[in-house]
Write a protein that binds this DNA or RNA. Structure first.
Lengths: 335, 335
DNA sequence: CTGAAAGCGCTTACAG
DNA sequence: CTGAAAGCGCTTACAG
């Protein structure tokens, strides 16, 4: 609880000015004689002095801290994403302020405001939806650079770094078609998230590639399990009306699990009657089905490195037109 | 990029002093006449003024920010834990600075230093090991309250909030014994983490409860998969030497997956020849094995609420002796 | 090579 | 009810 020593205490003990202490601590912008430096350093040691990052921020106008606003921390891919971002930032001596919108547009707006007054140097943003387009624009106009990760809000002038979702979904769907599937459905987790939209696009592209009639196929929107009473109803309804499809594209990890559970419940033989594929994350559990379930792996490390690099570029003043970087995903068929 | 308006700009536009702006923004500590207040509020609106949290921190000495230092963000339970902490903090208008030690004691030490100079109001700490006992003590002595979550470092005078790991493991082991298992092994993820140690204790307790001879049972330490060349070797070795056990207690989610994969590789029939149980996290994938794998669920929401509450108590000056709060886990047998 | 001093944007005790 | 002013712990241009 003892008051922490300040630069002033160090100066007094070392018999120098406070300025000199700064020059030693920061290794610049001006030299210090070897002897003085030694005195200062030993005073720092003795007092256990630690620079006060907040005071420095106030003076320099930079906090060496980046915000990360995600849509949720419960979906399995977020852990990988946050981990990758933390690693990238830490390697550059940047701190990470984390916030979650919990998929809620109002909360997202609130967190944008909070992060804005927190004076982060920049924001990495995984938007829950496109509801806060205006707020995102205002955020940027207030002078804080913003880079979208994983998803983006169309119409916001900001860099985007995300998986090439359309290509990945297309490749996955093609794989199932080549395994013999002729009546496919695609389970999408949102009609709003850009990543969901792009995955659906890839699904249709693959069907077109192989010249399959579109009438036999369908997109089902399966809300997040939390909150909704029977989130898997769309799949149940589909099967009741149209019978069992022979292939299911799942646009998230969670949807693989839910699809398999639903099929089992109906006593439909997964892997035999119906092929299932999807994922888009690196869950260890998925490996238990390796070979049975083709899984799409995203490269979050690369995504984070790129996004952080873009953001730091912007922070240092780069104001070239917004860029979009697509990260390649990998399809593991286990075959 | 435009300079943000400061309280000074607002004061000028509203024709009041800077002090008055503060009183309006903070709703105190002093009243402001209704008319003045209105003028100030409209000036704030007009300029889009946002208070500068960092400047306030410097003055007040409190950052309304809490640090969370975890051992990893890749293990499945961390997502649930971080989510729960973020929710608890956000509901109290506290921000979250997140850092990870990546299971590395040196990095952990570094992050403790970084977080210390960041001037967080307090730290929630999931230690990777007991290596940084002295640093944790120094951290507390520097005046920043610290609360352990999920694990603790013995000998550090700080509050601890964690799952009652021994009780949970004991209950799980008892369940397998009652299913008929007589030669059990326990896969532990660490010989150092307190949570691992407590789970192992619970394992032995259950055997003692049922009066089973200890000689037939064994603990295997299975390092994290990352980094080690063949992390599952201990299990392979055990089976080669002692034959197939009839029950395996897995102290993490990840170890369930690895155990099943290893058994399959040896063509051992899981669920038939060997019962597997464990978990300690709420992975949706685990549900696919519901009924086959008894799973321990931890209540991270409650853990986070308690830990945050303890930490805020400490921040507001509570210096009563350190408390330890055990959170009850729940065994789902699916039966 | 080194020091005295202004100022980053706030809060709040001190006057009026 | 309101204003002028000190000061939180730093950085850095300005002098010497």
């Amino acid at each position: 609880m003892g008051k922490r020593p300040t630069r002033y205490d160090v100066a007094q003990l070392a018999q120098v000015s406070v300025a000199t202490v700064s020059y030693v601590v920061n290794n610049g912008p001006r030299g210090v004689s070897a002897e003085t430096r030694k005195r200062v350093e030993s005073a720092i040691q003795q007092l256990g002095y630690q620079p006060h990052a907040i005071a420095r921020s106030l003076k320099t106008g930079s906090s060496q801290t980046v915000g990360l606003l995600v849509q949720s921390l419960l979906q399995s891919f977020t852990g990988s994403l946050v981990d990758a971002v933390e690693k990238s930032l830490a390697s550059l001596d940047y701190g990470l302020i984390l916030a979650s919108s919990h998929e809620n547009p109002e909360r997202e707006r609130k967190m944008l405001n909070v992060l804005g007054s927190q004076r982060i140097d920049g924001l990495l943003f995984v938007p829950a939806s496109s509801h806060n387009r205006e707020h995102a624009i205002a955020f940027i106009e207030a002078g804080i650079p913003l880079v979208f990760m994983d998803r983006y809000i169309p119409g916001v002038p900001a860099d985007v770094v995300m998986t090439d979702n359309a290509a990945a979904a297309r490749q996955l769907t093609t794989h199932l078609i080549d395994q013999g599937c002729r009546r496919l459905i695609c389970l999408s987790f949102s009609r709003d998230a850009s990543s969901a939209i792009d995955r659906v696009k890839g699904f249709w592209q693959a069907l077109a590639d192989r010249g399959l009639p579109t009438g036999n196929h369908q997109i089902l929107i399966m809300e997040y399990a939390s909150g909704v009473s029977s989130p898997d109803q769309p799949l149940l309804d589909y099967i009741r009306e149209h019978g069992v499809p022979d292939g299911i594209i799942c646009t998230t990890d969670d949807l693989i699990v839910r699809a398999i559970k639903t099929l089992r419940q109906l006593r439909i033989r997964v892997f035999d009657q119906v092929l299932v594929g999807g994922g888009f994350v690196n869950s260890p559990w998925a490996e238990l089905f390796e070979g049975s379930i083709p899984i799409v792996h995203q490269d979050f490390q690369l995504m984070a490195r790129k996004a952080v690099q873009f953001l730091l570029d912007r922070i240092s003043g780069d104001d070239s037109p917004p860029r979009t970087e697509l990260i390649e995903a990998h399809l593991l068929t286990g075959a």
